[in-house]
Design a protein around this nucleic acid. Sequence first.
DNA 1: GCGATCAGCGGCACG
DNA 2: CGTGCCGTTGATCGC
Lengths: 252, 252
Amino acid sequence: MVINEEEFQEVRKAVEGKKTLILVGNCYAEYYGRATSKIAEGDRIVIIKRDGSFLVHQNKKLAAINYQPPNSRVSCELLDGCLLLQARNPKKKEMLKVLFNKLYYAGSFELKDDENITVFATEEDLARDLMQDLSVIEEGLVPLKNEAMVLKGFIDILAEDKQGRLVVIEVKRRVATLDAVSQLKRYVAEVMKEKNKPVRGILCAPSISPNAHAYLLREGFEYRKIEYDPLNKEKWIKGVSKKQKPLAEFMS
Amino acid sequence: MVINEEEFQEVRKAVEGKKTLILVGNCYAEYYGRATSKIAEGDRIVIIKRDGSFLVHQNKKLAAINYQPPNSRVSCELLDGCLLLQARNPKKKEMLKVLFNKLYYAGSFELKDDENITVFATEEDLARDLMQDLSVIEEGLVPLKNEAMVLKGFIDILAEDKQGRLVVIEVKRRVATLDAVSQLKRYVAEVMKEKNKPVRGILCAPSISPNAHAYLLREGFEYRKIEYDPLNKEKWIKGVSKKQKPLAEFMS
DNA sequence: GCGATCAGCGGCACG
DNA sequence: CGTGCCGTTGATCGC
């Protein structure tokens, strides 16, 4: 009997009362569902959130080793002095079991937080602000906003060049890889088929891997380097200055 | 003065002593680096691991809203009665700041855990065990293990059909999407160029999206449905029975 | 270190 | 719901 009744009641009340529960202790864990996993006993942290999210963390790495998404049904029981937690997703036939044989800490909390995080410098931000001034990509490019919407919905920027040719522009916020070229290729083929005329493809990214570049050129597409700094308030995209969304303020 | 000196010393000792630290309280958070983010004050959970991993969790959803990868340099200070935590990655010029104005809990732990999780039913597992009996994909297929290694290293399975044609097989553990077809296409093109002869492409997955299937057929490739159950010990891949890696044991 | 790919990816937006 | 795709993706493995 390692887990005492008092601790268990704390856990039970948290699980039943939909509070947020934090556990630290020595546990074994196993999962089955989309795959199966197991890990022998070790000291870990478990977080069970109000919405049924379930996390098992080792004391290293960023990612949880086991988890269950929101809306999982959590149960707890005392089994031979051990605390057994189970998080099920009946629809997906998934189950995560965590068996604690030691508990260093158990605490439950009612956390009030209605805030949403705002993130800046996403691919969407890049594409939107680039569209305000496509000259950084190529002189004379004119964005065709509505076209892009109607046509696909996935194309970052659809534009027309000086010669009146359609240009599909794929924007990447980090190193462009083979995937990005494949993606561009699909979009170009799509538009070309739709419009029944030649379409150019431009890949915009801070850099591109050698393989991706070779693939790109082989397909007849073009690469344009873009540089950006999320903290530069006036011109966060190098070479683009007008009509940019103002940056969020940050303390020094 | 909301954070008391005693709590702060607990935090400071944990941060300096490379212990694992868990904080629960009301905080504001901001990040800058690859992007920028900020979120107004709310009740959240912070975990700082021994290796410098830093996590900020809201009381909903599975994913952390802010984080810093392993090896970040963490510092803490008391500022106007508030606890300021900073996690920096000098090389990437990244910084995460968390400012607590209330602390409901602060605990530090020395967690001992040398175990590694074992996961079964990954794509690698699927490909390896399928290779033991390719008849479930097509009668007469013979795997060319060494070829695949030498040729690329990324092709899941390279085989030869009854007519002696090369067959590139891409295996997916879940719904095959457009990406998977693009990937297969790249590999087929690669092998075709290398060997200078026609190459077939087969996409193996539990299911395939309509768009992906259309794209696949348009490219002249083929789809083969595979069904598997990670918990079925004798035949976890339907139709494949021999030489399979034994499944890990799970309690009922 | 970069490059390529998988992940029980998670999350979001759209149809 | 599925489909598609981004993500401060993270993590792994090969070079």
